[in-house]
Design a binder for these strands. Structure first.
Lengths: 136, 136
DNA sequence: CGGGATCCGTTTCGATACTG
DNA sequence: CAGTATCGAAACGGATCCCG
């Protein structure tokens, strides 16, 4: 487990369990990585890199390490030339798939909703924080 | 919408919709805030502050503003002395409740699983990244 | 009561260059 | 191919003081 994850698992009360999920899945690219590994079963470093539209190797490596440390994916190194490294979901990672799917679905709906908002010319009486009115 | 949220909604491809969810819900205390507003229907600033075990006012204010900007909660100001401000879920926020619940459930299970790992004395052959072995 | 202003340390992201 | 090393910029969480 990452130190950060461990701290949160230890110290936070049950009331905020959702924060644990955010701590584990909240890094850049992480949900996408889990999603792709869910679809493809096994992926090499370079394949992940291309599918994700090229985050820098530095960044991708760190996210993968963190997911590994938190137990969601496994990393298998083939000591050969040229090197080859395979990533898969662990049991824990497969257990997270429904959550990732839910994140994907809600995020898609939210993005679609907001894109409609962006497309629509701001109409009079639109809701740009006009609640500064005086209800009482 | 926050600038950050808007950037992500605009620029990311559909393949990474989950990142949108993380962008919106990924701040400290945010899932907890939504959770509490789901339970209590309406809460004042001070009530939220106490229920969350006292984040500083500065931090709580910022998270509430971001959630408001992203359209998940509403803020109603009563111009009286002493002041009174009420927070509620918006329609968008109510729509996020199933997602928050899923985050809470998975986070709870993950935390329980990892706490068992922490409690168990590390047994021989435990999995602290021993995959550096040579499969081929 | 419900903040705003200011400041700061840490974390995180990301670009560039290099390597077994 | 799959990284590592180094560096800079920015975002974030948080403390402290002040205010209508």
């Amino acid at each position: 487990m990452r130190e950060k994850t461990e701290r949160i698992v230890r110290e936070w009360t049950d009331a905020c369990d959702a924060e644990v999920s955010i701590a584990v899945l909240g890094g850049a690219w992480k949900p996408s990585i889990l999603s792709l590994l869910g679809e493809h079963d096994v992926l090499r470093f370079g394949e992940l890199s291309r599918l994700l539209l090229e985050p820098t190797a530095r960044v991708l490596t760190r996210q993968l390490r963190e997911l590994e440390d938190d137990g969601l994916i496994t990393r298998e190194v083939y000591r050969q030339v040229p090197p080859k490294v395979e990533y898969r979901l662990s049991d824990l990672g497969r257990g997270a798939q429904p959550l990732v799917d839910t994140l994907t679905r809600w995020g898609g709906e939210y993005a679609a909703h907001q894109r409609r908002m962006l497309a629509a010319p701001a109409s009079v009486g639109d809701d740009e924080r006009q609640k500064e009115s005086v209800p009482q």
